[in-house]
Design a protein around this nucleic acid. Structure first.
Lengths: 348, 348
DNA sequence: ACGGCTCCCGAGAGCGCTCTCAGGCCGTCC
DNA sequence: GGACGGCCTGAGAGCGCTCTCGGGAGCCGT
């Protein structure tokens, strides 16, 4: 109580390690040791320092610490504005959750940076390059993406979520799921259950995940009629539109592989409206296995599951490895590709 | 080119101000002056330093700068997990956009901190208290909210979005819109257009914005029959449910003030299903004027507009004022209440 | 009892930057 | 021509922390 009172006298100025050391009657070095775990300090001293910390309400000055350790214990998650919508995407939320959990396990802080427009890139670059964070995580970079350049220029260890487009270059490590393999499996299921005309409701052309899934569809089918691919953009509405278009073009379709669950749910709606039975008349498979969608469609959706939270965690682990190797001239690590599993429900 | 080459020789280690100064043939102090705007340095020297900066690819070490200036030029936006859903809320997105824009104008960086669970509070407290950010912005705090305690303990200048509950204390400045006044106006419109039985579809009890709007409804009506208030939770479904319940209890209702646009849209749907005409049989007013909703309901929604982005900007401005006054013993500033305006469309 | 060892602790040197302060230079005014 | 003032610049003192290094104390073995 009396101690706390003294502390409040020196109002404003936050107590320094020096003050803690003085109060505990030890050197600054010892106080520092205690604050950082207390290894190699005798118990009675540890206690005295701990008490002094408590009494003064000491909190280490991170800037000072960073200055000497060159660590920040903070990682930036960079989001570009056009993709801010991904916030509303359960997929992304789950991934960020994984990132956050893993970061906590590594005693690191998540710093979310939001790039709003072009002018922001300088600011972001300054921030990233200025040494406020140890590394960065970014999502699905595109060739024309200024962000890629910023990241590269900042020379900051970076891990990407989702395979970048080819123009980004091979030195950017990334984590992705086996989109192509998962898609192959999905289509094979459709074929195995007897579908003769398997179409694909494709995701946006400029996203590699969508492209890879389309490739998987082609893989499994040999050289499918291009008419069987209808373009969408990962939204439910686009799935509905693509399904309607498909029915127009190819009324004989009896199997549909949608690029994600949202599109599949849109397709399901259209099928229902047209009085087509799922899976009897048309079997449908999605991708992602987002619980809030796949389990509640009518009928429940057969889909390709990817471990989204796990991918978030992997991104962090990969980054941590990068951080440890940083400067050691180690080669850029290989991308991490997580496996997918087919989840059978009622739609196929 | 040759310079850049030299720079790359000293690989790994980032160039320091010292190196820039040496290359430019000036003192570190002068180099620092140039980097920070160049005031009071003769043009030829400025040029030489600028060139050296360019050549070496110098980026100031923010930790070192922060250590001496005690500024971070960064502000934390703290989001508690239970409210992570607000990401998907267009209301929140718009507010964050306002915050981001205003922060950029103040040359500050937005750092988004996400509190996931109880264990995170320590980490957040360390981060906030550790001096990585100059101030914090948080949203609609509740009495039982651990976050409030963390913020207070960190002794970090904080501005709240939305009036906190009374238990939080009066010393936390906040920005909010005139919920009560806006609600009064909405109800008055209903009364003026001849509604005799004006009900309220209320938002969640534990949010002050919802409580204030309900109070505004009471204000305008004197002492309305408590039966006329149906509880919801700001979601469209809850609005539909409340509307259905209301119709059950009071079939004579001819005016409805919904706590927000989403609830109003749910109510509109129920009204339509029951074959009741809007506004002829029942007039409806919402709150928020979220464009993506209010303009697209059937009929388009009459609602109370609040300047959401503006509120975000105001939060930042208020925080900046706090930052400037910090330590000067100035009294906690008054909350900022922004006015609302009634937007008349077709539903009332 | 003494050399050597281990174990703790304190002194002190920075990390990279900003900012005060004093001094040098020049122009101006008497 | 000398004194004064203004404008630039450089030297140097930290900001608060970590970490190396050396010394002192205690312990062991012989």
């Amino acid at each position: 109580m009396k101690g706390a009172h003294v502390a409040e006298q020196t109002t404003g100025a936050r107590p320094t390690l020096e003050a803690v050391a003085a109060l505990a009657g030890v050197s600054r070095a010892t106080a520092s040791r205690v604050v950082n775990g207390g290894a190699g300090v005798r118990a009675p001293l540890v206690d005295r320092v701990r008490q002094a910390v408590e009494e003064l309400g000491y909190v280490p000055n991170l800037a000072a610490r960073t200055l000497v350790t060159r660590r920040n214990d903070a990682v930036a998650v960079v989001i570009a504005e056009p993709e801010f919508r991904i916030f509303s995407d359960p997929f992304f939320q789950e991934q960020v959750r994984g990132i956050s959990r893993e970061l906590t396990a590594h005693d690191s802080q998540l710093v979310l940076l939001w790039v709003e427009d072009q002018g922001d890139h300088d600011r972001i670059a300054r921030y990233l390059g200025g040494g406020h964070v140890d590394g960065a995580l970014a999502f699905s970079l595109h060739d024309e993406d200024e962000l890629a350049a910023v990241l590269r220029r900042a020379k900051i260890p970076t891990v990407l979520g989702g395979r970048p487009t080819d123009g980004i270059g091979p030195d950017m490590p990334y984590v992705d799921c086996d989109n192509r393999g998962g898609a192959r499996e999905a289509v094979r299921l459709l074929v195995d259950r007897g579908c003769r005309t398997v179409a694909h409701l494709a995701g946006p052309r400029d996203q590699t995940s969508a492209a890879d899934r389309a490739d998987g569809w082609r893989d499994a089918l040999g050289a499918p009629d291009p008419d069987l691919l209808c373009q969408g953009d990962f939204t439910a509405e686009s799935g509905a539109r693509a399904m309607a278009e498909l029915l127009e073009r190819r009324p004989d379709v009896d199997g549909v592989f949608a690029a994600n669950d949202l599109m599949a749910s849109g397709a399901l709606r259209v099928l229902r409206e047209r009085g087509l039975r799922v899976p009897e008349d048309v079997a449908v498979v999605g991708f992602d296995d987002v619980a809030s969608i796949a389990e509640h469609t009518d009928p429940p959706l057969t889909t390709v599951r990817q471990d989204i939270e796990g991918m978030g965690r992997l991104m962090v682990r990969l980054l941590m490895r990068l951080l440890n190797e940083h400067g050691s001239g180690a080669p850029a690590p290989d991308p991490l590709i997580t496996p997918t599993t087919l989840v059978r429900r009622a739609s196929a």
